[in-house]
Amino acid sequence: MSIQEFLQHLANGTSLGSLYALIAIGYTLVYGILRLINFAHGEIFMLGAYIAYYGIFFTPLPWWLVFILASVLTGLIGLLLEKIAYKPLRNSPRITILISAIGASFLFQNLGILIFSGRPKAFPAPAFLNGVLNIGGVSVGTISLIIPVVTIILLVLLTFIIQKTKTGMAMRALSKDYEAASLMGIDINKVISFTFFIGSFLAAVGGIMWGIKYLQLVPHMGVMPGLKCFIAAVIGGIGNITGAVIGGFILGLGEIMLIAFLPTLTGYRDAFAFILLILILLVKPTGLMGEKIAEKV
């Protein structure tokens, strides 16, 4: 393998890793606060891409505005999802709420088939985003360079929100101790809604960039990325944002490099993430950056 090829794979892996990181953050935020795997997160990602698709086709707005509005709208859908499907079950056993999440995921998928039709749709990306740059013999799609940049900007913003604002402080408090935080006068519902909004917003941004990169939308496009990003969150230590980002990059780079170095294993690409998950869970169940939580009696 020449150095050019390697750099090309590296760029691809980084952009895939950034996408995974964006989606994984949504999982990790929600899990940190509610201790819930939001199974429908992959479908939120899918919805984001589809809303942007319809926005470009049916509104006269410029593409960047459509992308922003689509992300906000998807964020609101995520917020509604929590209100309808998870909030009534907050005090039930965890299995119940998990089943509700799986049900929501299937509902979105089938609604997607019903409304958007099962046939693949070509994402109408602005032309310059689909260009190919040639840097010193390495040809890389423009979008593969833009994705990491957007991801880093969003991550900086997110870190600012969580570390410096009052809502962020409330989020951190909730994930440390749910009950104590509610006793301190934190409006739990508001914070949870905000968390779902942010997570879904990021997933939608990821979905739109996914659409630009892979140019194809199908209603079940969110399933595999959804599962893989949950795995990324687990690998990094669920509940930890830095961990989710690291996990996303490990998964994205690992997947691309696996195919690059061992082309015979291409068919096993989707299994790679799951094997990694099981290994991590067996060796270090709390993930790379997670804290050990003692079992309370």
Partner: peptide, 28 residues
């Protein structure tokens, strides 16, 4: 034997992972 040491959510995702691995192996 290894996976059942995990608690509920992790168990769910790990078993789901195994069923996907089995499917991928069958395809290949």
């Amino acid at each position: 034997a290894p996976v059942l040491k995990l608690t509920d959510d992790y168990l769910a995702i790990a078993t789901l992972g195994f069923s996907e691995i089995i499917r991928v192996v069958i395809i290949n």
